[in-house]
């Protein structure tokens, strides 16, 4: 192939330069090799002396985590963790809501007793038969028949 450009080497010519560079290998000096191996030994020795050299790191970290756990974390765990706390929080909020809003359905179901009822007069609102009609109100029916 003819050289197409006098101002540029072709791939073959350039490859000869790369080839020369590949053969021009660097040999580390003895001092450099010694320094690198010295670093390696120092690093290795340092690790052996420290607790982090334990092979099973997860065990060490797990232990640390338990030791760091505080009072609230302990309390939470004793109640069954976050899922249990979520249930308790829902029940608490429901109670507060009922207290403030006083839903009418609840009033109707309780006959005015639970929320806005007058507790001092509840005995007059309900007679005993309301709670146990089958035992105390039978005379009414008997009278009707008779």
């Amino acid at each position: 192939m003819a050289k197409t450009d006098k101002n540029m080497l072709d791939d073959h010519e350039l490859e000869a330069f790369f080839n020369a560079a590949r053969n021009d290998t660097a040999t580390p000096s003895d001092a450099l090799m010694a320094a690198i191996l010295d670093d390696a030994a120092t690093e290795q020795a340092g690790r052996d002396a420290s607790p982090s050299s334990l092979k099973d790191k997860s065990l060490v970290q797990g232990k640390d985590r338990r030791q760091r756990r505080g009072f609230w974390a302990d309390l939470r765990a004793s109640m069954g963790g976050w899922p249990a706390l979520a249930g308790m929080a829902t029940a608490t909020i429901a109670g507060v809501w009922i207290g403030f809003v006083s839903p009418a359905q609840l009033e109707a179901m309780s006959g005015g007793l639970v929320l806005s009822g007058d507790y001092s007069t509840s005995a007059q609102t309900y007679v005993l038969e309301d709670f146990a009609p089958s035992y105390l109100g039978t005379d009414v029916f008997m009278e009707d028949e008779g």
Binding site: A26, T27, I36, L37
Partner: peptide
């Protein structure tokens, strides 16, 4: 080497140091 082997570092250095020295020099 990470597990404390004393020989591995030497072999790794012999293999890798010349390459990265040449690369760094370039």
């Amino acid at each position: 080497y990470g597990n404390g082997d004393p020989v591995a570092a030497e072999l790794l250095t012999r293999r890798l140091a010349p390459r990265i020295l040449g690369f760094a020099a370039r």
